[in-house]
Design a binder for these strands. Structure first.
Lengths: 346, 346
DNA sequence: ATGAAAGCGCTAACAG
DNA sequence: CTGTTAGCGCTTTCAT
């Protein structure tokens, strides 16, 4: 089923049919009769254009590649959901790629996407700087970085002010009277881990105290890792009062142990974490949290990409989004007042 | 950059180059010298085959379409993650589509996927039976249903025994001494909603009691909907003791209100829900939960699709997976003993 | 206002 | 062992 069948049925030539199909009837002053007869045949035969052929001919596939570390993570799930929807609005289909934080996968996928002649790539990279492969690829197709970026790059990117947010969260914990704070991290040398730990450390430095290396863990971005880190932490330092979790997944894992620990010991641990807003309601406890604007993150990434596709040279924009520090979530029934007061006094 | 450049550089013909590229050097007894010289040029020029052209020529794109209601839902997130990874192992790329429970979107995407000449489609449908469009499409490309299926269809599918599991969950609630049970549902007339409510009703019927229609809600598969339904329920019936949630998202939303309510009234509500295993640890409370084997679900769907691609006529398999009813999750510190005892007595 | 023909980059049948 | 050529389905000059 191709234009050929339409041709046989109507007697018109390839070009005329193609023009009608692409809505260029007016432009080429094709008679209404011709157009109608073609459209009728198209409907009757249920003809649909072959997008692969069109892609080959046009050197444009209307396809983009989305590379994320882990689509299971609801944070990336939401980003993917938003971007896919927005891209669809521009006529693009989205090819999904999961790197699982493995740099080799990232290189593999980037290559595949180029081979598939996608029109652009949105990338939440594992690498922390522009490695050789990417340098070659960005010459061929526009690439936009989302969430995780490179420090020195003229690739367009969008991310949140993670370092600053982490700093503020820790500072808040200090103001609440905690000076021993554990850091439950993810994959070492990864962008987020680096930036958020940097903010963590900065807050300590300003306060003039040293980060206790025994309270710093980096086991991976997953609930399982979070659980393990929390267990190790409690084994090592049962009297810990405040814990900083590098992301939502680590937080969820950590909470399992925290709750158990609190029941057993009667002690309360103050938790701080990034991007846990969706879960905040579910915990009957004060929580220090930083929330990124996922909608803006997604929208910006797509906009930057579209711009890049339209004019590859014009796209060097860097967007740093503020992160919402709705610092404490305190169910009013649970003595939150005391916390709040301490915070207000500074 | 195409085979042509390789040809110009090495002097060999299209076909020879193509053969070497596709690892058919042995088969066509191409001399080692020729092969090496070609491979050298390929490396030197950084040549990569154009998958669009290959796809057009071979009538095979090594691409599959994945249509899910909502990639934000960690349940589908995990399925997508597993399937993408497995498909990648077979050399396929995955095109991601979100229907948001809207039937029109499903039809749109299916059409796009066919136009893109994907080699197959994995579909968690919104429709509850084989509508006209699908009937046409399945003639062109293999389609596999996952999670949500059609009752009478010879399309291959894989799902869990949802009706039975819901029945067992409710029966468990009965045995624990609750006979007024609320149903917090999702999108009406959707497969899961139907099946799980059917199981819910069946348990009531067996017990000889009627389902109270005032305790049945269907507001959508989302935390927001769950929250709203729980609020409505508590307004209507503050003394409710047991609540059945149709899925993980509804459960998460509902919990927010439950916790508040419990703190305010001192009453305990027993929650039952599907696919909340990942969150179970986080709640210090008994929970009745049914857990689907997402790994098996994903693996089976991919296997069925691969089979379907290899032999379109051979694929009519239906796989119904048992659902794990690890019925009660009871933190031992919290009087779980009493619950367990009641359950054991039957 | 419409048609003929080239060509996107690749594979494979056929020829030698 | 290697080369020539047709053709996948489409868009787009260039003719007329």
């Amino acid at each position: 089923m191709s234009i050929k069948q339409i041709q046989e049925k109507t007697g018109f030539s390839y070009s005329t049919i193609s023009r009608v199909l692409n809505g260029k009837a007016k432009e080429f002053r094709i008679s209404d009769k011709t157009r109608d007869s073609i459209m009728t045949a198209v409907k009757a035969l249920g003809y649909r254009p072959n997008l692969v052929a069109r892609g080959l001919r046009m050197q444009k596939t209307n396809t983009i590649g989305l590379i994320v570390p882990d689509i299971q993570n609801p944070f990336f799930g939401e980003l993917a959901w938003r971007m896919e929807r927005k891209l669809r609005g521009f006529g693009y289909s989205t090819i999904l790629c999961n790197t699982d934080e493995i740099a080799d996968n990232e290189e593999y996928y980037l290559q595949v996407l180029i081979d598939r002649r996608v029109d652009g790539v949105i990338l939440a990279p594992v690498h922390t700087r522009e490695w050789k492969g990417l340098e070659e690829i960005r010459w061929k197709k526009p690439v936009v970085l989302i969430d995780r970026i490179f420090f020195k790059t003229d690739l367009p990117w969008v991310t949140g002010s993670n370092e600053q947010a982490a700093d503020q969260m820790v500072t808040t914990l200090f103001r609440l009277g905690h000076s021993r704070i554990a850091f439950l991290g993810g994959v070492p040398r990864t962008y987020m881990n680096t930036m958020r730990f940097r903010g963590f450390r900065k807050a300590f430095a300003r306060r003039g105290i040293a980060v206790e290396s025994g309270l710093v863990f980096n086991e991976g971005y997953s609930p399982a890792a979070g659980k393990k880190m929390m267990a190790d932490l409690l084994a090592r330092c049962p009297e810990i009062e405040a814990v900083f979790c590098v992301n939502n997944l680590v937080f969820l894992g950590a909470m399992a142990h925290v709750q158990k620990h609190e029941i057993e010991t009667g002690r309360r641990i103050l938790m701080a974490a990034f991007d846990i807003a969706p879960y905040c309601d579910m915990f009957k406890r004060p929580l220090v949290c930083a929330t990124q604007d996922r909608e803006k993150l997604a929208d910006t990434a797509v906009s930057l990409l579209i711009k890049g596709i339209q004019d590859p040279h014009l796209s060097r924009e860097h967007v740093m989004l503020p992160i919402d520090l709705s610092l404490l979530r305190i169910p009013r029934t649970e003595g939150g007042g005391a916390w709040q007061k301490r915070l207000d006094k500074g």
